[in-house]
Simulated assay, not measured.
Amino acid sequence: MIPEALLITYNTTVKVFEKDELIFSEGDFAKNYYQVKSGIVKMNNFNDDAKEFIQGVFYKQQSFGEPPLFIDVKYPANATAIETSSVYILPKEKFYELLDNNKNVHFKITENLAKRLYYKAIIASEISSQEPSHRILRFFDYLKHDVYHQEEKFSLKINYTRQQISDILGLRVETVIRTIKQLENKGEVKIIKRKVYR
């Protein structure tokens, strides 16, 4: 997202979060810009039955938690390290200063937020009306084409567990496992050493 060299010039700090460590909590006010330096971070909520719903998963060079930073509201979800992760943390005032001085970065962040809104609208539609196989392929294709910009068949390794896919798409994990196997039999995905490729 924001080039690392540029973040460093604005005196950003780097903090290491251990696996399952909370970065911020649902209900906290947004005070910082966060960007993954290494590792994996998820944003999630839990419903009244303690079922997890994953809002998003973020990898190296991806930012997370920006919308509340722009509109002075509380976070609608938690952010947690899925594995040991290093995260750039830039205070809100410095973040605004960086955007004021780098309009191209401001545009890229706006574009990224628009893509996330589009994705959430697509996923909401898929969850409410489509079969599991359609939901899963739509999610994989969003990652492949819109996030990682890949076109070659089976070029994208899906870095999500079956449980994470089920939490994102509102499916039972057993349904995800069964459906992915069916998709492999149809030639839509490939499974190599338990990893899924699209």
Rank of each mutant, 00 (worst) to 15 (best):
57 V>W: 01
112 N>F: 08
21 E>Q: 09
83 E>S: 09
46 F>H: 06
101 N>S: 12
15 K>W: 11
128 S>M: 07
42 K>T: 06
36 V>L: 00
51 K>D: 15
123 I>H: 08
121 A>R: 15
132 P>Q: 00
31 K>M: 03
126 E>H: 11
102 N>F: 08
69 L>M: 00
67 P>K: 05
56 G>L: 05
129 S>Q: 11
54 I>W: 03
124 A>R: 14
25 S>G: 09
84 T>C: 09
98 L>S: 02
90 L>I: 08
130 Q>K: 11
20 D>T: 02
98 L>I: 04
16 V>E: 10
121 A>M: 13
125 S>K: 10
113 L>S: 09
118 Y>P: 00
32 N>D: 15
87 V>L: 11
120 K>E: 08
71 I>D: 15
69 L>K: 00
57 V>G: 12
74 K>C: 05
92 K>I: 12
65 G>S: 04
84 T>Y: 09
92 K>V: 07
109 I>C: 02
99 L>Y: 01
54 I>K: 05
50 A>R: 12
23 I>R: 01
26 E>V: 06
29 F>P: 05
120 K>H: 14
60 K>M: 03
51 K>A: 12
55 Q>W: 07
120 K>M: 11
77 A>S: 15
122 I>A: 15
137 L>H: 01
86 S>P: 02
15 K>D: 10
95 F>L: 07
108 K>N: 15
58 F>N: 04
82 I>H: 01
80 T>S: 03
119 Y>C: 07
73 V>D: 10
53 F>G: 13
18 E>A: 08
113 L>Y: 07
67 P>N: 08
111 E>H: 15
121 A>V: 14
106 H>Q: 13
